[in-house]
Simulated assay, not measured.
Amino acid sequence: MKTHNLKQATTVFLFTFLYGCIATSQRSDTATSSPYTIGYTSLPSGIIEIYEGTAEGTSTITSTQENGGYVAWSPNGKKIAFYGKYDDKKTWSIRTMHIDGTNRKRLTHAKNKWDNAPDWSPDGKSIVFAREYKNSEGFWYPEIWIMNADGSEQRQITSLRGSNPIFTPDGRIVFSWEFEDKTSAISIVDIDGKNVIRLTHHSAQEWHPEVSPDGSQIAFMSDRDGNFEIYVMDIDGSNQKRLTNNNVDDWYPSWSPDGSHLIFSAATGEKREDRTIYMMHANGSSIRPIIKGGAQAAWLKTVK
């Protein structure tokens, strides 16, 4: 009887020890051990869809029946902002709607300009977005704009030339500063356009910054090593690390609500619709495909 108890106690101890080692050797899996929600553009249809998945591999996909891209979730998870195309695709405008497809609104109406990449302020009261258009000399010019969440009081942040703006939890803006030589750099700035700090310093194209939910890190895409890969760095630009290493382009990183995982899109064929959305740990490990024929994916940051 004493021998049986000893064996049982030893087994329990070993299990507890091994479980503790595993738990401390990798980051939390809470983002994939419970249901998660992702908004993305389905290809080739161009329709925004909502994907709800679990770690066990079960999933449901709901179509919004709305064409558009660059999905951005409101802080409460009830609405999305995105861009839609008009005038035979010559005009792009920011739109919003509830995730069930109701209450659809067009917020911007600037003709022959491409309004894209919207993001909500932490309090949900404002939306920042990028605007691109051909200037009088025929060159594309990038601007950063901001407006109230209902589309009112639209105004340019005049000191900024760039794209892909996104709010930090403390209300600043991270964006891709675009230079005349076609290179770009991830930068951070106050909401009034003052105190711009350049965070990356490579002769490369560096786009689509995504700030982690706790505001400590930025994920982004860069072609500094030959083709677009996903990188991560601290909010002050330090500790820059490459997370993916593929012979195809990787785009559009997005953080899980707890910051333990990232999703991104990658080309998996020659056609535009040959793209797949992947998930990985925040350190770049355990990459796996989750959605075929999808791009510009954004993780719902609100934990349900």
Rank of each mutant, 00 (worst) to 15 (best):
P169E: 07
N227M: 13
G39A: 15
V174E: 07
Q26W: 08
G215I: 07
R275P: 06
S42A: 15
I144P: 06
S74E: 14
I173L: 11
G294E: 03
P165A: 06
S159Q: 13
F17V: 03
Y70A: 09
I94R: 04
A31H: 07
S33L: 15
I94D: 02
I22R: 01
T54M: 08
I38R: 04
D88T: 10
L160T: 12
A23V: 07
I38C: 01
F17N: 00
S187Y: 07
L107R: 01
M147D: 08
T158F: 04
W255T: 10
K292F: 12
I197A: 08
L199P: 03
K292C: 09
S93I: 00
G101S: 07
N247C: 14
D150M: 04
P122K: 10
W207N: 04
I50C: 01
S28H: 02
Y19E: 00
I127M: 12
S163K: 13
P209A: 04
K2D: 05
K2C: 05
E56H: 09
F129M: 01
P213M: 03
M147P: 14
K125L: 14
G269W: 15
I263P: 00
S285L: 09
G284L: 03
T10L: 14
D234M: 02
V189S: 06
R27N: 02
A23C: 10
E210R: 06
T276I: 08
P289N: 13
P165L: 05
S45I: 15
D234F: 09
F220G: 01
L243S: 07
A219T: 05
G215P: 02
L14V: 13
T64A: 15
R242T: 14
Y83H: 07
E66R: 15
E56D: 11
A9P: 01
W92H: 08
T168L: 08
A267E: 12
P169N: 10
T32G: 06
D123M: 14
D190M: 05
K134C: 04
H261K: 12
P35I: 03
T3M: 15
S136G: 08
A55G: 15
T3N: 15
K134S: 11
K271G: 11
I22L: 00
T108Y: 04
N135G: 09
T16M: 06
I47Y: 11
R242I: 15
A149W: 11
V248A: 05
S184E: 08
V211H: 03
T302W: 02
G69S: 14
F139I: 12
P118W: 01
C21H: 03
I146C: 10
F139Q: 13
G151T: 03
